[in-house]
Nucleic acid binder design. Structure first.
Lengths: 252, 252
DNA sequence: AGAGTAGAGATTGTTCAACAATCCTGCAAG
DNA sequence: CTTGCAGGATTGTTGAACAATCTCTACTCT
């Protein structure tokens, strides 16, 4: 959701269209300002907790004690509870009234549910490209390109959780092609929940490795504007991925 | 979100019909208990605000003052802020750091975005029925039936906002056929945002009336299991509805 | 001994009052 | 007309306090 660290200042860009260049620059500045402003204590606390959860430090089922965390995070109880609410609505925590907040334990039916949504949304994005944006500029695919390379590099270094992260960012950027704020929000939530599942799985390599090359294949189909083929491939891709997670899940 | 509790051991299967009747009763009791338990002050405050917003008492753009509302709702500032967070994540309020919370002002692009999502999700639900649940029991369509009738009754009484509400519930129940908790949540949010739009529209009758009969037609297609036809109709239905809202919106 | 119950201790839900940080308004100066 | 600067108002955050609820232990009764 963040970590698009300062993309700014890459110089250049005094091409023919000064007006649009300036507009683009204004946009990036506005984005930076928004990122700085976003600092409220509750959201910073939520950031730390989010990382702890998605990286597995807080395993599914764990309870988060309020007094304990106020000391660790150095925020007041009220602020901490606001952070809890934030994460609750991302699906990364669940409230049980008068009992506390817990890291949710997802079940098979959640996997099925999550993947159903992923298939619907992601496949629709691709089909949508064919209809509404067949002249997709290559620059919009750059983030996807970077993600694929990041996954390949991480794989060479045997860093499989990093591969998983890169793969997820690939899908996040894929959804981003739709220019739909609400799809972006939903996807963020879906992928966050999915991440929850990864930590109960023993074999991250088997889980992530096959999709590095498939992501690259998908990207090439997009670059050559074979949208229908990309949609079909992605559908099968997600079915396979779901199956892989379900199997790993049953074998835990 | 919760209320999966007390699903436990209903004493096994005594008479088949007694068993299911008892199960149904247990479910309703569980729902009641959940409703009472859910009482947290923040959620009660959120309920009141939600109604105020969706019924138009708080128009788009309005700012919600904290001190003012603590007096009206008789809750502390902290609890009120928790209610704000709840509504923020439903899309019914937006936070501006150090400035306060506001009822969002949706624009044309939001209409387009919302309807894109609605089309994707709702049409997929129908197509999904064909694949995974062709033997859909008639009882599952009862809520849809009730909604259609409610809309027809309200129309006869010239109560057009009520017609709009009934129409929305129809779509909510339609999504419910998918048995997907996450689709339900997303739809709730999408429809809440859509409601926000209705209040800047001057002619609720023209907006809602055509869809009463179309809802009934859709329902009949589902009852006779003509799923593909229903999917096609629904797609066009949503395109028309989007167009209607956009026109009313531009003419405001 | 085992089941049920009462109560102590711990945790969460909510309130209140205070202070710090930020925004908005109006006014003066260039 | 814009820029810069108080002053007032609103939001962000804290800490302490109390009420409500849950959990676990120890006790009573059969």
């Amino acid at each position: 959701m963040v970590s698009d660290d300062l993309e700014m200042s890459t110089g250049g860009a005094e091409g023919t269209e000064q007006g649009t260049a300036r507009q683009a620059w204004l946009r990036t500045v506005a984005a930076d300002v928004a990122r700085l402003d976003r600092s409220s204590s509750a959201e910073r606390a939520a950031d730390i907790l989010r990382r702890s959860i998605t990286e597995g430090a807080l395993p599914p089922g764990a309870q988060l004690s309020e007094i304990e965390l106020t000391e660790v995070l150095e925020v007041s109880r009220n602020t901490l509870r606001e952070a809890f609410r934030l994460l609750t609505h991302e699906g990364l925590l669940v409230y049980k009234l008068h009992r506390g907040v817990f890291v949710p334990e997802l079940e098979e039916r959640d996997v099925v549910d999550l993947y159903r949504l992923r298939r619907v949304l992601e496949v629709d994005v691709i089909r949508g490209l064919a209809e509404r944006d067949p002249e997709l500029p290559a620059s919009r695919l750059e983030p996807l390109h970077d993600d694929v390379e990041a996954a390949e590099v991480a794989a060479l270094a045997d860093r499989w959780p990093a591969v998983g992260t890169a793969n997820m960012r690939f899908h996040e950027h894929l959804i981003g092609l739709a220019d739909s704020a609400r799809m972006d929000a939903m996807t963020g939530r879906l992928l966050a929940e999915l991440r929850l599942l990864f930590h109960v799985i023993a074999t991250p390599r088997e889980l992530h490795e096959p999709y590095i090359v498939r992501n690259r294949g998908l990207l090439e189909l997009l670059e050559t504007r074979k949208y229908e083929q990309a949609a079909v491939d992605l559908h099968q891709y997600l079915l396979d991925s779901e199956q892989g997670i379900l199997e790993a899940f049953r074998a835990r």
